[in-house]
Amino acid sequence: MINTIIFDFGDIFINLDKDAPIIEFKKLGLTEWSTDLQELNRNFETGKISELQFIEGFQEHIPDASIEEIRHAWNSIIPDSTIPLYRLEFLQKLSTKYRLFLLSNTDAMHIEKFQHKAGMSFYRDFYQCFEKIYFSFEMGLRKPDAEIFNYVIKKHNLAPKRTLFVDDKKENTDAAKAAGLKVWNLQVGQEDVVNLFEKIIL
């Protein structure tokens, strides 16, 4: 029987607009998402580089873009409406029955933007639902690396067979499954986290 649930953040609780940054960066003159930009993103997500170093990495490809323009383009993935209230209410009810954790590949810029959009009262209510919140940029680890799942399991003495991991990316749920966790690979646009009890026998 499940007693613990580890949730991803983006497209599980907060709806992301993943096409927006591509559109915004094209406006700034970026022609392709090269492998070095992907590596730049990984380094930012794992806290290996600062926000300024991240932005300067983009400026090597779009030298005429300002710091604020790049920051705006990068943060455009986060829409004006953040977490729907019904998801927060669902999470609050869930937190009375299960140990809950948040495990997200994200960076300091996106989290700052989310908190600004949501407002202090709302994001505090959201964060308080979790026993512990893990952001990749603070941990120095990211999904789907096995190390990140093993760290959370050992740190909180979790029983993998009694722990459910929810994520929208199959490579992440596959890695969690390999670590012994139960998984739900949520299909964005077709499923909603509030339908958890319809999808998973807890």
Rank of each mutant, 00 (worst) to 15 (best):
E89L: 10
C129G: 00
T106S: 09
E24Y: 11
Q115V: 00
K132P: 00
E198C: 02
H72D: 13
Y127G: 00
F126N: 11
C129N: 01
W33T: 08
I55K: 02
N185L: 05
G47A: 05
L40W: 03
E147A: 15
Y134K: 12
K27V: 07
K48N: 10
K177N: 14
W184R: 06
E131T: 14
K154L: 02
L102A: 12
L141H: 02
L186G: 04
A108V: 11
F7G: 03
P63K: 02
E32V: 13
A20P: 02
P21M: 09
C129D: 00
F58T: 06
I200K: 14
F126P: 06
E112K: 15
I77K: 13
H116Q: 13
K18T: 08
F197P: 05
R162H: 13
A175W: 05
S76L: 08
T173N: 06
L164E: 05
R71S: 15
N157G: 04
C129F: 01
K27F: 07
Q190F: 11
S34V: 01
K155P: 03
P21W: 08
F135R: 09
Q190A: 12
A176Q: 09
E51V: 11
R87G: 11
A175S: 14
S104N: 01
F126K: 12
T106R: 09
L85R: 02
K161D: 15
E147Q: 13
R162C: 07
P63W: 04
K199F: 11
H61D: 08
F135M: 11
F7L: 01
F9K: 06
P84Y: 03
D11S: 13
L102I: 11
L202H: 04
I49Q: 00
D11R: 13
G140W: 04
V188G: 06
R142A: 04
E89H: 01
H61Q: 15
I153V: 08
K161L: 12
L37S: 01
K26S: 14
L91W: 02
N185R: 08
V152N: 11
Y151V: 03
Y127Q: 09
T173G: 08
E171G: 00
K117T: 01
L91K: 09
L40F: 03
K93R: 08
F101N: 10
A159F: 05
F137E: 03
L186C: 04
L103Y: 04
F54C: 04
Q38N: 14
E68S: 14
I67Q: 12
S104L: 04
S95Y: 00
S104D: 02
D36E: 11
P84N: 06
Q187L: 09
M1N: 03
E24I: 10
T173Q: 06
D19I: 11
K170Y: 13
F13H: 13
L37R: 09
L91A: 08
E39M: 11
Q128A: 06
A146M: 05
